[in-house]
Write a protein that binds this DNA or RNA. Structure first.
Lengths: 167, 167
DNA sequence: ATCATTGCAAAAGATTTGCAAGGTC
DNA sequence: GACCTTGCAAATCTTTTGCAATGAT
């Protein structure tokens, strides 16, 4: 029941929210207002985010739908556990991205503007599996980040904006 | 003067210590006892390490050769700056490894025993450069970690050690 | 003598935890 | 009603910083 939820190559039949409810049920956990607010918000936005960015986007303390910081952290961990989100580290902080229904990918990270650019490479997966096999290592996943400067930042270095920059 | 310092494919003529002294000189920084203790210690051990592990291996407070925690952090940053060490993050903490005179490589990380296994792949570098080129991205480096279970841990799961484990 | 560096104590930043009050099944 | 969750305050963990004393050149 319900439409298919799909983003790229992976095809699944439950929405993130439905999948999370299933997860909660199966563990005897409760479907609370805060958890609903968080699934709803996170899966209607497709960017990468960290805890602070997320909290900044949610209703402020006092407003309806407010979720406290500890609950945000606790719930993010549940999403990771439930396979809805993937977590990784960048500059000493945790960054989250959609996992459920989202195709496997890696990132280019621009050190100048902090942008994360996604890319997908089957060749990388093959390479990874080959390397692991050689070491008789059982792979569960990987994380590749390519560091450097993105196209836009290369361009704006060459032709500085002349607006606020460098008086 | 001095033997060549070599570990793999990269060939250099200064020892890490000499290179660091050069770096200090060129910046008007001073060659202190603490800095000597740290270069000396770090480059006589070839493992990956984090700040805590390093401090645990150094002389304790009160002993000769003691280096305070803030100075350890400050000096590790200098080593990174000087190109002697590379820094990356694992489980929310900074991990360091030799860079100077050490060939480029990536890691397999065993989630069971926390071991880091190094591997080298030219194919990965090519793939990385190709991906970057497609995006007109200027690469400065990358970091790939393959997560999973190492050979030893796979084996000891199958045939538990029967010693202290699981009574 | 000058000025970089150190150690200490304290701060900072991110995330986690104990616990009493409140919400869900 | 039982017991999972929440928000608060406080703790934790890792790393950084201000500053007076110390040390290198």
């Amino acid at each position: 029941m319900g439409k298919n939820y799909s983003l790229g190559s992976v095809e699944v039949s439950l929405s993130p929210r439905e999948r999370f409810e299933e997860y909660l049920q199966s563990r005897g956990m409760r479907n609370t207002e805060q958890r609903r607010v968080l699934v709803e918000h996170i899966f209607s936005h497709h960017e990468h985010f960290d805890a602070d960015q997320l909290i900044a986007q949610l209703p402020a303390k006092g407003s309806d739908g407010y979720v406290s910081r500890p609950t945000v952290y606790r719930t993010l961990a549940e999403f990771v556990d439930a396979g809805l989100l993937r977590k990784f580290e960048l500059n000493g902080r945790a960054v989250y991205e959609h996992d459920y229904g989202y195709p496997q990918h890696d990132h280019l990270y621009c050190k100048s503007c902090q942008k994360l650019i996604e890319f997908q490479s089957d060749e990388l997966i093959e390479l990874r599996n080959r390397v692991a096999e050689e070491q008789r290592f059982r792979v569960t996943g990987h994380r590749l980040i390519i560091y450097g400067t993105c196209q836009d930042c290369i361009a704006s270095r060459r032709r500085p904006k002349r607006k606020v920059d460098q008086i």
